[in-house]
Amino acid sequence: MDQQTLQRIFYGALGLILLVVLGGGLAAAGWPGAAFALFAFMTLGGGLVCIWERSVVRSAFALMSTFMGIAGLFILLESDFLAMAQILIYVGGILALLLFGVMLTPPDMSERKLGRVLPGLGIVGLAILWVGLKVAATAKWAVQGAPLDGRADGPISSAEAIGVGFLAVDQYVVAFELAAIVLTVALVAAVYIARRRLSDVQPSRTRAGEVG
């Protein structure tokens, strides 16, 4: 099989799966089910494509699909603030950062595909499936038993609660401040390491007075 055929089979299968899950979701739980199926498909399909594609740019865009799908799942989980944050930070920030990285490094088309991907995928996938199944069969989650759409007061805006939680004395204020430190440190570190100067390339010939 040549590359072209493989691509066709892969995307064709993806399309089929999309149709199946959408239909399944609709049949199982109505429109919310269909929405879940769509977002789940975006998430996992994006992940699959990300692994499958050999162009880094395409993979990055596939990953965007994953992030968007997760944002959708967050909305379904009544965490609209989180969904916004997901889109803003992940899609707007992290992915943009990744794309920068992609653009700063040359394309690498020598990537081997099936021979390398499939065995690993198979073994790890099977192992994780096995563990996952065992876990799924036996997990007792700490749930209160409330179904998604059985909630009386409907979707809540979590933004206010989260904002209060950030600053309330006995809730997350320490974590919030620590996160600030984390970001500062990350910023300083990233700037230091990414910043390039003549002296970094030629460490032995540091010119006097060159600071920055």
Partner: peptide, 22 residues
């Protein structure tokens, strides 16, 4: 809340990691 902090951590980590990769 953990999710939000995870997003923050991911951002920070991505920044550092990309700097190192570059």
């Amino acid at each position: 809340m953990f999710a939000i902090f995870t997003i923050i951590l991911a951002a920070a980590e991505a920044a550092v990691a990309l700097a190192i990769v570059l």
